[in-house]
Write a protein that binds this DNA or RNA. Sequence first.
DNA 1: CCGCTGTTGAGAACGATTGTCAATCGCATG
DNA 2: CATGCGATTGACAATCGTTCTCAACAGCGG
Lengths: 140, 140
Amino acid sequence: MIHADATDAPDPGPRRTTKQREAVRAALASSEEFVSAQALHQSMRQAGSTVGLATVYRALATLAEDGEADALQSGGEALYRACSPSHHHHLICRRCGRTVELEAAAVERWAGQVAAAHGFVEPEHVVDIFGVCASCAVAR
Amino acid sequence: MIHADATDAPDPGPRRTTKQREAVRAALASSEEFVSAQALHQSMRQAGSTVGLATVYRALATLAEDGEADALQSGGEALYRACSPSHHHHLICRRCGRTVELEAAAVERWAGQVAAAHGFVEPEHVVDIFGVCASCAVAR
DNA sequence: CCGCTGTTGAGAACGATTGTCAATCGCATG
DNA sequence: CATGCGATTGACAATCGTTCTCAACAGCGG
Ligand SMILES: [Zn+2]
Ligand SMILES: [Zn+2]
Ligand SMILES: [Zn+2]
Ligand SMILES: [Zn+2]
């Protein structure tokens, strides 16, 4: 299967304010890097929280859905990060996870144009750059 | 975890020619779209082959490793496609999977420059555009 | 305070992928 | 062509990340 049906983006639904969701939001905000749901869950437990793993997964999903976090897929697992609300991409250190937000109007334009040129509508794009940051590079 | 350690790309290893690997190569080549290992396995069985699922996974992994196929992650599963050997990106219909190979020197240049500008080395990038192709768009 | 619902946590369930291991096969060698 | 070593295979178990199930619980409007 290529992708879930795109006709599903109807009801952002009511969203109740709970301790857990706030705790996840906070924990996520306290990390400058991309983190997995499992990693976030563990760090929260170690910090005394009693959140359930499923709840962390659910909270991260809704945060991403609401545009409060960015998600990317790396090494078979989903990683999340609290990001600025505007559209942007990432430069990520594959060693330590350090992340730099990137804005590139030229790339946005290119993506839209190339899609249109081939008759594709509702274009979305995935643009991420991975590398080894300066400090991780010297640490070798 | 952010990414597997990058120091592992030593031995492409010997690669023996077997009926199974060839069959997978052929099956993959016969599909213009990106397909999952499972889907490819099923179509091969239906076509009379007796390959094992694990073998299909292994064959696809080596083909991708050898640059004979491109892999991308979509909807939680890995998709593969026989692609031209030179570096390129993709424009993919999220409905039918139709794929267009894209070359964009400007994007390559941008990726390299932005990585260097932030002191990142060994840059790699993921650039894919998803949309709904013309024929899938009218079929609504 | 009440009630209606959305939410939560524990654990089971799931689906994709990988590991295990004996049987088999490619292929270099004589 | 016969042999032998080691890569490869296939059936199945095992992992792993993620989602589902469901009863207990907790926002929040009235
Ligand atoms: Zn780093
Ligand atoms: Zn963009
Ligand atoms: Zn299409
Ligand atoms: Zn490129």
